[in-house]
Design a binder for these strands. Sequence first.
DNA 1: TCTGGGGTCCTAGGACCC
DNA 2: TCTGGGGTCCTAGGACCC
Length: 435
Amino acid sequence: MTRVFALVDCNNFYASCERLFRPDLKGRPIIVLSNNDGCVVARSAEAKSLGIKMGVPFFQIQQLVREHDVQVFSSNYALYGDMSARVMSLLEQMAPRVEVYSIDEAFLDLSGVSACSDLETFGHQVRFEVQKCTGIHVCVGIAPTKTLAKLANHAAKRYPKTGGVVDLMDPARQRRLLSITPVDEVWGVGRRLAPRLNTAGIRTALELADANPKSVRRQFNVVLERTLRELNGISCLELDTIPPSKKQIVCSRSFGERVTDYDNMHAAICRYVERACEKLRAQRSTARMLNVFIRTNPFNSTDPYYSNSANIGIPEPSADTRDFIEAAVRGLRSIWKPGYRYMKAGVMLSDFYEPGTFQPSLLEVNVRPSSSTVLMETLDRINQSGLGQVWFGGQSRAKNWTMKRQYLSPSYTTRWSEIPVVRLESPLEWRCDNI
DNA sequence: TCTGGGGTCCTAGGACCC
DNA sequence: TCTGGGGTCCTAGGACCC
């Protein structure tokens, strides 16, 4: 049976989410910044055409922003996450199998679905439905492999006359598109591989597709060999409909202001441990290893650089925040050096076990009281209820380490107090305002 | 002055085992 | 003087993705 994959990708997702509730920003350039308002992570079409590049530090484009009255937003993940869930649930209604690949894109498996026999029409239906129900514009790429579906989606975005849908099931059409696609635009070819491929005389996606798979594996790696086969229409990457549980969980942040005293660092680390343990419990895992790291600014050549990390084992797999706070503090004390201006810190949990699968040694007594599970469940329930927050003492030692989010928009869809209000000014005229 | 956060997969090499 | 062959597990580092 021929495989059919569709890649549905939201256009300028974060910028579009911000504009959804601000119709007054229609046609104006919008950018969204990373945590701490550090880099540009999303741009509206208008901002792209001003030449604002993805990932550029915000401070480097201040003048451009002023000159063109670019609208700036801090990342509002509550908003983007909620809009994403709405888009994904629509896709799940339209296709039998869906892999949510990232916050703004999903692969659909359309193999053998008769309602999808006219694939291009189906693509347009998806676009129409998502736009009607959420206001978000998507593009659809359809092909016999995921890698080709990615390329089809790029083409749908790049060439307006496609109407936002490209059906790349036809091999001749595949080769035409591959021949005009630089190899570095292929999914799986990053900034390290691209120059090496160019040196080897492979400049276009078609040249990669036509290369010898064996020698590509020998000269590069097995991952690139798979990419090559995918470009030839041989599906090597399956659809993952159930997100696999994480094998490690990281929580780390850069600080809004440099951290120089121990109490602030201690508070930040405790907060990160709490977040990481919440994620751990959400996927019903337990962990046995914690890594804590601290680092100064590597870009700054005048301040002395220091970076260190510590691994601390937990005797028995646990999901109890208290165990990890204790371990993290022990680790932090062992690597903390006063006199530095710290920029970033974080914790990582690893070595996961499903509850009940860990084999303790013969002489070890199970010391974990069942009250631990109950306590953690209660904690999570309170914190998710929206009625208030409970946290551990460690993070209230100091408060001077939070993120910078100067341009944050309201949580329009997830907070009652920030819900947008529509005011009718006259029967035929309406305006959408935030409070 | 100001440069994000969170993941995955693969490979090579060392330690160790019989 | 002469010093094998085959395996596993772990870690660090490199590559990629959004």
